[in-house]
Design a protein around this nucleic acid. Structure first.
Lengths: 199, 199
DNA sequence: TAAATCATTTAACAGTGTTAAGCAAATGTA
DNA sequence: TACATTTGCTTAACACTGTTAAATGATTTA
């Protein structure tokens, strides 16, 4: 009777253990390898036990990404607090964002739906089937450089692509705004970067 | 004996049927719902038959994305051919790229690893757990606008985020360049956009 | 007509998420 | 202390997944 809160504490602990084990499996073997039975093995129980702590496998994933966003928020807040000028704050925040993504690759992938499956597939496709060359060609002409190995063209190309792919990804997932507005954002972004090309 | 090529033609046809059926299932029910038995149902065969045309389920996915890249390449080429100035060509190409992504949402997701699983999850998370507000705050201060509903801040914020998320996505998947170069690209992109903010 | 090849299916295996039934130990009650 | 009940956990099972091997039946070849 007096041990009621101790039991609750233990329950909370195994709940944490489930999440920790899950994250570790994901980090070591990828999202694809995460299975209920493997989690159960890690916490030295059998699979059905997990359903006393999470209603679903998806609920575990959801909680993992939720914790991911919390950590990211903390990192961003911390980065912001180290500067006073908004421009500096913003720069520090993006870098913190960047660091988080690469320090927690798998978690970031889970948070933003960058799947590992298809990544491996793309790497297996022949380079010739990819349309990247068309882009580098035109960007090369635009800035008057034909040497495809040039660092400048690489960077510009990279930046271009990131803007577009990022915009598309975000909109494919949660379609934040109207299509017209998205197009305008795209145009503005392209225009802005084209302007910086000749600097 | 004389019907050898006819048989080959039939074989080629069911191969196509497999791919078509797969793509249709993906379009209607998502990548997650694509199973060998469901494909078999669609082409009115049983599952093991598929293994006479594709060694794997992954081989089907690979072929689908390969065809996706081919279509994308064609669209880009076509967009490019309609202009002469590189700047105009580039703009048309990005818009073609954009259109392709949204006309073939599922295919694009498969090609670039934007998984549907996690997208649904993110939508289920409470808005409060997300760190977006921190960004909009700082960007608002930066451009001297505190009204969070402002269209300007939305667009700027959107653009910022796209650059970073796009860069990270691309690097997480296929880590194109060195970390130092990536950071420099990030800084340049941020610098460029900050400059365009006060226009 | 008999043999051999081909196309296709059925059966099976190991794995997945998930649920229901069972068991055994700890607890509450008389 | 003896019985009843709840609790913690496991085993068994279901429907599904990708994949492979064996069986079947039709078609072609000799």
């Amino acid at each position: 009777m007096a041990s009621k809160d101790r039991i609750l504490r233990l329950k909370e602990e195994t709940r944490c253990n489930i999440l920790d084990a899950s994250l570790q499996i994901v980090k070591e073997e990828g999202w694809q390898a995460l299975s209920m039975r493997k989690i159960a093995d890690a916490i030295e129980y059998t699979a059905p036990i997990i359903y006393e702590y999470f209603s679903n496998k998806e609920a575990i994933l959801l909680e993992l990404t939720r914790k991911g966003y919390l950590i990211l928020s903390r990192d961003l807040q911390e980065a912001k607090s180290k500067h006073r000028l908004p421009a500096k704050q913003l720069e520090a925040m993006w870098i913190a964002y960047w660091n988080f993504a690469f320090a927690n690759k798998e978690l970031y992938q889970g948070m933003f739906g960058v799947s590992t499956n298809c990544c491996e597939m793309v790497n297996k496709l022949p380079e010739a089937d990819m349309p990247w060359d068309i882009f580098t060609e035109v960007i090369g002409e635009l800035i008057g450089i034909t040497d495809m190995e040039s660092e400048i063209i690489c960077k510009k190309y990279y930046t271009f692509w990131s803007v577009v792919h990022g915009l598309i990804s975000i909109n494919l997932l949660s379609r934040g705004f109207s299509d017209e507005m998205n197009r305008q954002v795209l145009r503005d972004a392209i225009g802005g970067i084209i302007r910086t090309i000749n600097d």
